Computed example of a mutant assay.
Amino acid sequence: MKLSAFAKVAAIGGIAALTLTSCAANEGGSAEGDAQASSLSGTLVGGGASSQGSAQEAWVAGFQTTHADVTVNYDPAGSGAGRETFQQGASAFAGSDRAFKTDEIEAGPFDSCATDALVEFPAYISPIAIIFNVEGLDSLNLDAATVAKIFNGSITQWNDPAIAAQNEGAQLPDLNITAVHRSDESGTTGNFTEYLSATAASDWTVGSIESWPTEFGGEGAQGTSGVVEAVTNGVGTIGYADASRAEGLGTVAIKVGEEYVEYSPEAAAAIVDASTVEEGRTDHDIAIELDRTSTAEGVYPIVLVSYLIGCEEYADAANAELVKEYFSYIVSEEGQQLAADAAGSAPISADLRSQIEPAIAAIK
């Protein structure tokens, strides 16, 4: 849905109400260092991936501790909504469970930006947990083909032979499976279906998609919270969600090579560091091409890499200063540890941070 001209002006005006009340940080260093030399005030508006919700709450609280006159508002409306809002100029930054595609960037425009060059980088790394609610079961082992058949509607009972064969001794009930998926356009769905497409293409034939295919049925729910709520309140339900929200539910260990690997921040970080940056990107557009088919020991392949997205050059320089400062705080060791403590995410590695910092420094 397009924003009206008035709505755009009002939204951008709210974002642009940023003033530097003393010497501003010009290089986007750590929040700790720059906070001593500058005092920012105003309101920073962002939104997007609900997977980042808990992390964003922690980042906002930590950032506002050192920048008391800054208000950061982040709306976890979903990746698709966040990218659209950012592109239409109604927010200064977006959180998204995928980067913009190169053809989307070429098509533009991005109304808050002076040019269509973007700064994109991983800020939140977390496994996507397959969660379920079956009385008496806390964990299950499943391979990619079985997961694909559950979510495409081919496997409909919890005591199906394909599940039983991988879970010897488990008391599997004669109970219908209700597969819960995101009803909104979702980067979490995109990452989950990318795994299925890469590892079980004969059973998952629709590729990597952010909007759930209606032909597969199941129960739709809005946002991460909606999926978790539907699985929690249902009987025989199964779904997928950021692992930070898996507490209290049964979870699936995924077959990788010859072993079954449970989700963990460490296993999620391992696959990111083993992957490469996508080709065809600019120097400050750091989109990771994940190797979902890796059989390396201890790697968990259903991983969500959630991005922060901003302008390389903002139409309003005041926006650039505040976005640069906030982004710098998020990728700092302090910011990444806050997210790990709040959401169970994997802190980015020092190597990845060394790639991200020049991209943030380029914001103007």
Results as ranks from 00 to 15, higher is better:
residue 1 M to C: 10
residue 1 M to T: 12
residue 8 K to A: 13
residue 12 I to H: 14
residue 28 G to D: 05
residue 34 D to N: 11
residue 38 S to L: 00
residue 40 L to Y: 15
residue 44 L to A: 03
residue 45 V to L: 15
residue 48 G to A: 01
residue 53 G to C: 05
residue 56 Q to R: 07
residue 65 T to Q: 14
residue 78 G to Q: 01
residue 87 Q to K: 14
residue 91 S to N: 10
residue 95 G to Q: 04
residue 97 D to W: 05
residue 99 A to M: 03
residue 106 E to M: 07
residue 111 D to V: 13
residue 111 D to L: 15
residue 114 A to R: 06
residue 118 L to E: 00
residue 128 I to P: 01
residue 130 I to R: 00
residue 133 N to M: 09
residue 138 D to W: 03
residue 144 A to Q: 14
residue 151 F to W: 10
residue 156 T to G: 07
residue 159 N to A: 09
residue 162 A to D: 13
residue 172 L to F: 07
residue 175 L to Q: 14
residue 204 W to K: 15
residue 215 E to A: 13
residue 215 E to P: 00
residue 222 Q to N: 12
residue 226 G to H: 07
residue 232 T to N: 12
residue 232 T to V: 05
residue 244 S to C: 02
residue 248 G to A: 08
residue 251 T to K: 04
residue 257 G to T: 12
residue 263 Y to E: 09
residue 266 E to R: 02
residue 280 G to F: 02
residue 281 R to A: 04
residue 284 H to F: 09
residue 291 D to R: 00
residue 302 I to G: 06
residue 303 V to Y: 03
residue 321 E to N: 14
residue 321 E to R: 15
residue 322 L to T: 09
residue 325 E to F: 04
residue 330 I to H: 03
residue 350 A to W: 01
residue 354 S to E: 13
residue 357 E to L: 01
residue 360 I to N: 06
residue 360 I to E: 02
residue 361 A to T: 03
